[in-house]
Design a protein around this nucleic acid. Structure first.
Length: 556
RNA sequence: UGGGGCGUCGUCAAAUGGCAAGACACAGGGUUUUGGUCCCUGCAUUUGGAGGUUCGAAUCCUCCCGCCCCAGCCA
């Protein structure tokens, strides 16, 4: 059985189950439809859906759409799509706005119980009456209105008789409470705004604290999992459910995900999009689920990452290397291998017949025997990677260099015989001689050949665009800037480099956007939706681990 | 300086009074027709600090220190 230790939430659930509190575990993922989902949400999705699945229970998808000024249906569809992509199926789909009638009735009930009142204080006045962290607040002058008056006023609020912001419905709790949210929190505010689902049928909208616990309770959510910042709101969550005497959902808070070299906050991601630092919510550099998907990150890698980082209450920042590891691990197992030359230079094999074409067996995926082999054409004129050749190489460089023998993967051993340069001194062509006895790349006498190069046949390849992505930010904590500078000052100017003249093997021609593969020795890539049959576009998902790059860096 | 939380390796994170897991990162070595993968090895005598209880403490007690959250008619 599973040796893995349980996190504190599963321990609580186990205890609740043991105590006979529930017969079925019900959770929910409750996004506000005001932006796109990001990797932080993936953690919430993974735990909410994951726990429900594990306990044989249910998990709902619920849109927390109680604020019409921020929300939009555009986001609803995108969010549903992202949740499905991660591989989860909601038990049922809900909208907080579907419960507006019920919430309204429960609000009236609280008024009737003498536990809520209509307050005419302006927002500034409310703030002044609220007190501070160390001084208690004062009662609103409207606090002692009669039930009848409150009911009448609240109904007229609903009917649209009052202007926006002129009144609120407040819970009557305790203005002296050291817990700020218990100082007569607002339950309803007046907002003469069109809601994306209810249109103009409402002009009063419930506040989060009042709405959320009712949504959970209504759906029979047994464990309402949310992030740490809601910990201080829990007394209020419990207060509403207790006073109304309805199903008691239990709120449990866990630490939200922070990732190094990344910004995970809707507000800042929105800024990146709106001010065009990136091409959109699904820009492959964005930590949004749509961005990661377009980048070529498999859903399985994200889920694996979520399981590896664990669940706890302490604030932490996960090293992005952990995510990168999950991505490589997944892709290594599944991605077919391809030889593509990103920065081509011509390689001429002088002693190879001009009109000859040979085909070599190419292992599609060494990690997956069932992927089989493919025939790859080899001719006299090839392309190789420019940085696989150096005229004056440093120590430990064991690629091509004048006079040295290297292997052309799966084909032959070749020895560099010279180079051709243009007037600017740039290398336009590398020349070499092959050993006909080394067919397949095997040294006939067992001589050692350290370097192995990838290549494509000039006449059996086509040009394509490749977008080389790197981290969006240069600093570990982009929010931590020098003397108050904006977080955009942490942006990595080299997060995107576009290579326009890459050479692809011909068999890549018919592949569709989303197709993922490994360009050998280079990294994992996928076909971008911008791709057309005339001009294919690839995204680099992530490089391979590069001990050579590390070595180079050290020498410098 | 009110209230609510949290401090275990560089980064995540277990251990629930009985010899401080694991992963990532890092370092070294081996295999290799990808400088990839894979495989070995090393990496906290000590758990924010100081006392105390105990045969025995990361776990219990006391005091101290540090960090996070709350003063929206946002969620």
């Amino acid at each position: 059985m599973e040796e893995k230790s349980r996190d504190f939430i599963r321990e609580i659930i186990d205890a609740d189950l043991a105590a006979g509190k529930h017969t079925e575990i019900v959770t929910r993922f409750p996004p506000e439809p005001n932006g796109y989902l990001h990797i932080g949400h993936a953690k919430s999705i993974f735990t909410n859906f994951g726990i429900a699945e594990e306990y044989g229970g249910r998990c709902n998808l619920r849109f927390d759409d109680t604020n019409p000024v921020k929300e939009d249906t555009e986001f609803v569809e995108a969010i549903k799509n992202d949740v499905k992509w991660l591989g989860f199926t909601w038990s049922s789909l809900h909208f907080a706005s579907d419960y507006f009638d019920r919430m309204y009735l429960l609000a009236e009930q609280l008024i009737t119980m003498g536990l809520a009142y209509v307050c005419d204080l302006s927002s500034e006045e409310v703030r002044a009456y609220r007190g501070t962290l160390t001084e208690s607040g004062r009662n609103s002058p409207y606090r002692e209105r009669t039930v009848e008056e409150n009911l009448d006023l609240f109904r007229r609020m609903k009917a649209g008789e009052f202007s926006e912001g002129s009144r609120t419905l407040r819970a009557k709790i305790d203005m002296t409470s050291p817990t700020m949210c218990l100082r007569d929190p607002a339950m309803y505010r007046i907002l003469h705004k069109t809601h994306h689902r209810t249109g103009n049928s409402w002009c009063i909208y419930p506040m989060y604290d009042f709405a959320h616990c009712l949504e959970d309770s209504t759906e029979g959510i047994t464990h309402s999992l949310c992030t740490l910042e809601f910990e201080v709101n829990r007394p209020l969550y419990d207060w509403y459910l207790e006073k109304l005497d309805i199903f008691r959902s239990r709120q449990i808070e866990f630490a939200r995900l922070n990732l190094s070299y990344t910004v995970v906050s809707k507000r800042y991601l929105r800024k990146l999009v709106e001010e065009h630092y990136v091409s959109g919510w699904d820009d492959p550099r964005m930590p949004t689920l749509s961005g990661l998907r377009r980048r070529g990150v498999p859903a399985s890698a994200i889920n694996n990452f979520c399981s590896v980082i664990g669940l706890a209450k302490r604030n932490s920042t996960v090293d992005i290397a952990l995510l990168e590891h999950s991505i490589r691990e997944q892709l290594n197992r599944t991605a077919p291998r391809v030889m593509s030359v990103l920065d081509p230079v011509k390689l001429l094999i002088e002693n190879y017949p001009e009109d000859k074409t040979e085909y070599f067996d190419y292992v599609v995926n060494p990690e997956d025997d069932s992927a089989g082999t493919r025939a790859t054409p080899f001719t006299r004129e090839l392309y190789i990677e420019q940085d696989d050749f150096m005229e004056n190489p440093p120590k430990k460089f064991f690629r091509m260099t004048p006079g040295r023998e290297v292997r052309l993967r799966y084909a032959y051993l070749v020895t560099c015989t010279g180079v051709t340069k243009n007037d600017d001194g740039e290398i336009t062509e590398i020349r070499c001689a092959y050993d006909p006895e080394s067919k397949g790349g095997n040294a006939p006498d067992g001589r050692k050949v350290r370097g192995t190069l990838h290549w494509v046949s000039a006449n059996h390849s086509f040009p394509a665009e490749v977008r080389l992505y790197d981290r969006l930010f240069n600093t570990e904590n982009p929010m931590n800037t020098e003397n108050g500078a904006d977080f955009t000052s942490s942006l990595n100017p080299d997060s995107l480099n576009t290579a326009m003249n890459c050479r692809m093997e011909n068999h890549m021609k018919n592949r569709e956007p989303g197709f993922t593969c490994q360009f050998e020795r280079k990294g994992y890539f996928c076909i971008d939706p911008d791709s057309t049959p005339e001009k294919m576009v690839f995204n680099r998902t992530i490089t391979l681990r590069e001990s050579w790059a590390k070595l180079k860096g050290k020498k410098k």
